[in-house]
Design a protein around this nucleic acid. Sequence first.
DNA 1: CATGAATGAGGCTTCATTCAT
DNA 2: CATGAATGAAGCCTCATTCAT
Lengths: 188, 188, 188, 188
Amino acid sequence: MRKKDDEKERSIKEAVIKLILEEGFHGASISKIAKMAGVSPATVYIYYENKENMLQNIYNEYSEDIFDYLLSCVDLKMDGQQLIEILIRSYYNYIIQNKEIFSFVEQFSNCPSLVNSCSGKKGVCHIYSLIEDMKKKQIIKNYRYDNLLAIIFYPVKAIAVDNHKSEAERADLLKEMIIIIQDAVLIQ
Amino acid sequence: MRKKDDEKERSIKEAVIKLILEEGFHGASISKIAKMAGVSPATVYIYYENKENMLQNIYNEYSEDIFDYLLSCVDLKMDGQQLIEILIRSYYNYIIQNKEIFSFVEQFSNCPSLVNSCSGKKGVCHIYSLIEDMKKKQIIKNYRYDNLLAIIFYPVKAIAVDNHKSEAERADLLKEMIIIIQDAVLIQ
Amino acid sequence: MRKKDDEKERSIKEAVIKLILEEGFHGASISKIAKMAGVSPATVYIYYENKENMLQNIYNEYSEDIFDYLLSCVDLKMDGQQLIEILIRSYYNYIIQNKEIFSFVEQFSNCPSLVNSCSGKKGVCHIYSLIEDMKKKQIIKNYRYDNLLAIIFYPVKAIAVDNHKSEAERADLLKEMIIIIQDAVLIQ
Amino acid sequence: MRKKDDEKERSIKEAVIKLILEEGFHGASISKIAKMAGVSPATVYIYYENKENMLQNIYNEYSEDIFDYLLSCVDLKMDGQQLIEILIRSYYNYIIQNKEIFSFVEQFSNCPSLVNSCSGKKGVCHIYSLIEDMKKKQIIKNYRYDNLLAIIFYPVKAIAVDNHKSEAERADLLKEMIIIIQDAVLIQ
DNA sequence: CATGAATGAGGCTTCATTCAT
DNA sequence: CATGAATGAAGCCTCATTCAT
């Protein structure tokens, strides 16, 4: 009896997100994935029940990743200004450094037919207590949690995914955006 | 007999965006599209050179739609507060009332392989002069255009696409969001 | 618009029953069928919704064939002896001369998973009135219809499908079998 | 430890014939068989060289079963009437009580590609001496052996496999059929 | 212009079988 | 002996596109 090969599962996953970045969601066929992962098409079905299941599995694994990363970057001893800056910069950096994963998660999220049939734990909850805590400490204004999340992260996304701009331009935009957001959500 | 042609093209377009909302990007095959549009698969190729071309065509047609709509909603005689509110509400309403189109445009935009090979005129330019005008009039703070656009529209999108919430909840969030954005971008 | 080609449908059907005789029910893959019929695999799906449907369709077409043939061979002016002989010989000849069709129908009938999901009009009804008529005329003994059918046709089948015997041997057996059946079912 | 092996082989065999009844000949894949038998697919290849071999093996084991059973039911002290009745009723009962085995053997027999490449000892020989003996004793008419076999058993099969009828109806048919056959083959 | 027929290529998945433990 | 992992080949079917009317 051979053991399940973690290496193989990993290379399959990597092939999926890489292919989906390069060729879009529909260009990632099982045979291409298998070829890129260096396994037989049949092997994919040892690790995943079928293609849809595979995508949802990978989505569930990575969709929370970014928030775990954010939490690992912040420190409760930071003051409000620092904290917002770190959150935003970390979010931005994650997108830049994990293009493939981010693109995969975004494409998946935007596809109603996929995301609706997905078990879908909203992984955002980890960051909930952080935000609520800062509201109680009167560091962040008392806006609704969902709105705070939207304000802090969505505009940054717009900068990060804009490939028409140079890195320098985007760094400038980001700098200004941090100030805008700090002004918007911090008390004083 | 011209009218009939236009109708066919329209019904094809509608079939495309409807199918892509319902079954995702890869569920929209030419034969399904043709069936839903009530035409033969061969007919599709009278109006479009091939499938990719067709999608890009439709994308180009609809990707600017939202900004045209926004401009049609605002009035230069409005004050700053009003204007921001109208922009945001209009944007929100467009998404709600044009789910299919919005979903199509979003999915297309997020697919690198499609959007990169697209002629891609940045349709956002229409709104550029409006924003710049308000900056000159010292109504809106002197932030970079891209950031202003991101701040005003991206967070709203988060509210509009969140299907886990009731209409009432989303209306509440929107109300608050308008205030947040007004505070962030208006002078005083 | 091209018209549906009757030739093509016929060659597909023939390929199916020929292949199933040669290679058994499971050796008849769509691609082999298509190759033998001289069409593309995709073409098969223009004429049949799917494989199961195709097989059922062909079964329904041929399962009654033999009884139509039998009826075309008999004549109401025949006496009882003649009639039984003709029925048996015709049945035998049909099997010999339509090996492929007969084998297909038999294999299909014996496969519960196929035959149960089949619309399945019992085509035997055509011969019903013939038998009942002869019972009324006191030519054939007053046995139940189903039993008469079984007695007249089933033993003959055993002779016809026995490939271990020479043609001459089978002719001898058939001759004797006719007498046995005549004795069994005719009055006097 | 021997017992365990035999059990595995038995459970594989049972899985094969059960699956073939339920899902037809082509629905019985090695992996399904293994799953149903509670063993690994690889284990099947310890007991059988390959799939075709396995099927032929099982066929050879069961194809004679019914005749062994028949012989175990009859007694040479019975008179002709009794003997025919017992033979027929036993044959009928075997089919009813061993649906799976019978269906497997029938499907296999009707598949030329399988049965032709089969070592194929005609298992019917056991019953040969019984029939010939009764012919010598002038109990059964002096018809050819093959025809007697066909007359006695084939029509019964028609009743046994007809699932459109109730058990009661079939019992009635069987009762009459016994009389028909007795009349046909017994002297006086 | 419009069509349904036709197709080779490729989609996902399962197959029978072998490998390595 | 027994296993689950692994695989190339092949299964069915649908795809985007073209053909012929």
